[in-house]
Amino acid sequence: MKALDAIDRRILTMLQDNGKATNKEIASVLGMSITPIYERIKKMEDAGYIKKYTTVVDKDMLGYHLMAFCNVRLKEHTKEYLERFEEQVAELPEVSECYHVAGNFDYLLKVTVVDMEVYHFFITTKLATLDNIGHVQSSFVMKEVKWEINVPIE
């Protein structure tokens, strides 16, 4: 696919703001017909610009009131150990994000649970039992100041 043009970027911006926007709605805003909008979106999906469509739910309404960021340091840093840790942590439903980072720690995990008791259970029976864990340091979210899933599209 060629580089994104201004129309593609506007379409992506609109879809980030409302993933349920129809091709008809997008076409109307952009002053275009439905078919070219459909074709542009399909090309962006096929090229990987659009990874998936999802629904953002309110974690607090569902009872998930504790969010923590876990810095994890591994004991060994061979390719096999890193891959194994990534496979294992990907299976933990409490972990919504995992990043391999540079610095004092190897990984940063975003963990969302109901409360501290559940977090303690997660740390002691799940995370601490993974292969090659050397050290875990947790930071707890006191207040969510900004949360944004959208990528700025210029």
Rank of each mutant, 00 (worst) to 15 (best):
D5H: 13
Y119G: 01
V89A: 09
T129V: 14
A128G: 14
S28E: 13
N132G: 04
L82G: 00
K75I: 02
K59Y: 11
T22K: 13
T13L: 08
R10H: 05
E91C: 09
T35W: 11
Y53T: 08
M32N: 04
K59A: 06
C70F: 14
M142P: 00
Y64C: 04
P152M: 09
D5K: 15
V72A: 01
G31K: 07
P93A: 02
I149K: 09
L92D: 01
E154M: 05
K146T: 10
K43T: 15
S33I: 14
L127R: 05
E87V: 10
V111K: 04
Y49Q: 03
L15G: 07
T35Y: 14
D46M: 14
D106I: 07
G31W: 13
M67Q: 05
V29H: 10
T125K: 08
L127N: 04
Q137R: 03
V145C: 06
I37V: 14
L108F: 11
D8W: 15
V95C: 03
I34Y: 15
N150Q: 14
Y107W: 04
V89D: 00
R40N: 06
A27V: 11
P36L: 06
Y81T: 06
T124C: 06
H120Y: 10
Y49W: 08
A102M: 08
I50T: 11
S139C: 02
K52A: 12
I50E: 08
M44F: 14
K126D: 04
I34K: 11
N71R: 09
V29G: 04
L30F: 10
L130T: 03
Q88I: 13
M67I: 07
I149M: 10
L30P: 05
T55R: 11
T125S: 08
I26K: 14
C98G: 01
I153H: 06
T124F: 10
I50G: 07
Q137V: 07
V136Q: 01
Y81E: 03
M1L: 12
E117M: 08
T124W: 07
Q137E: 11
L4H: 00
M67E: 01
E94N: 06
K43A: 14
V118I: 07
H100P: 05
C70Q: 03
V95S: 01
E154V: 10
A128K: 15
F105E: 00
M32L: 15
V111G: 01
F85G: 03
K52D: 04
N150I: 07
Y49A: 03
V72E: 00
F85L: 06
R9N: 11
D46I: 13
M14A: 15
K24M: 08
V57L: 14
H77E: 00
K143E: 04
D5R: 15
D8V: 12
A102D: 02
P36T: 08
K2A: 12
M14E: 02
E83S: 10
E91D: 06
L92I: 15
K51G: 09
A6D: 14
Q16R: 02
I37K: 02
I123K: 12
H77A: 00
M116K: 09
R73N: 05
K43P: 06
